[in-house]
């Protein structure tokens, strides 16, 4: 392993590298979930969108590599992945807004349906190699391969960081952002303002699912960079918890994504310097962290800070 030369210093470096590589999917799903929940509905099914996105991005990149070229093909894949997520989001938006239908239950069903569709359609694409997304190599000044690997940045990650700022501005300073917040906090008041609550929610749910699918595209086309049925390590499932931790604030989603990406990187980083013991336990680190954060931030008496008023009320 290249980190061996650095000895124990390899661990923090490998964690930083792992964080930069592994945070983007967390970032995209949590931004997607944030947008969805701001409008007052929960989408637990983003795991399905993520898997569908990972599969369709890889499939499109593989299928169009000869016609579109190996530079354009992966980006085409990202776009198509987003629209696949949009379609799944459309199903969720329709069902979750029916009377007496619980949005949490629809989310569970969408996990099963979305992952089923992804595995079904993705079967032929498990073996072949598709062109992947490029990276910005910022570490070429260093002769150490570990540092070079750590400073490889995906344009998709930069796009996600930019998106967090844009979304923050959108909620705070735009007319449409106000509509979304009004629908999520007080649907009755929003209705009185003349806003169509179902339309705003449908748009938010679909756009949120689009983003989650782009997060999936990152998994299959950048890191780990291939399509398998085990490609997701539950990023879509953790999105809901991430958003609670981020207090429904897109900029804090960014911090949460880096924290979780870092937690996920600890196990492989330890393994890379030869620490094999408790490897499986370190794999559970992001889940334990999520649960711990939820225990600390929740309270039986008051509602959570920053939570949209209509969330979980069925209104």
């Amino acid at each position: 392993m290249e980190t061996e030369a650095l000895g124990w210093w390899g661990i923090p470096l490998a964690v930083i590298a792992g964080t930069l590589r592994g945070s983007a999917p967390f970032l995209f799903v949590s931004l997607g979930e944030c947008l969805t929940e701001k409008s007052g509905k929960i989408n637990l099914g983003l795991e399905g969108s993520l898997l569908m996105g990972a599969m369709s991005a890889y499939a499109i990149s593989f299928l169009t590599q000869n016609t579109a070229g190996s530079v354009v093909a992966p980006w085409l894949g990202v776009l198509v992945a987003g629209f696949a997520g949009l379609a799944l989001g459309g199903i969720h938006a329709f069902l979750a807004q029916q009377p007496r239908v619980n949005d949490v239950a629809v989310g569970i069903a969408m996990i099963i349906f979305g992952s089923g569709m992804a595995f079904y359609l993705g079967k032929p694409f498990i073996q072949p190699a598709a062109p992947r997304l490029p990276a910005f190599e910022l570490g070429n000044w260093s002769s150490s391969p570990a540092i070079q690997a750590a400073l490889k940045l995906s344009p998709l990650l930069l796009l996600g960081i930019l998106l967090a700022f844009v979304m923050h501005w959108f909620f705070r300073s735009t007319r449409w952002g106000l509509f979304v917040r009004a629908v999520g906090d007080n649907p009755d008041a929003a209705r009185a303002m003349g806003i169509s609550v179902p339309k705003v929610r449908a748009l938010c749910i679909m756009a949120g699912s689009f983003l989650a699918a782009v997060g999936g595209a990152y998994l299959s086309l950048y890191y780990p960079g291939s399509w398998t049925e085990r490609i997701s390590s539950g990023q879509g499932l953790m999105a809901v918890a991430l958003v609670i931790f981020a207090k429904w604030n897109p900029l804090q989603c960014l911090l949460a994504a880096f924290l979780f990406g870092g937690a996920q990187a600890i196990g492989p980083a330890l393994q890379s310097v030869g620490v094999q013991s408790n490897y499986y336990l370190w794999n559970a680190a992001p889940y334990v962290l999520t649960l711990g954060i939820m225990i600390l931030t929740s309270s039986p008496r008051r509602t959570l800070a920053g939570m949209p008023g209509a969330l979980g009320t069925g209104k």
Binding site: I91, Q98, V101, N102, V106, A109, F113, G116
Partner: peptide, 16 residues
């Protein structure tokens, strides 16, 4: 899995 997903979604829809 797809079949299970379809059943689940339609059962939920029937609640409405």
């Amino acid at each position: 899995l797809v079949f299970q997903g379809i059943v689940f979604l339609l059962i939920l829809y029937s609640e409405s």
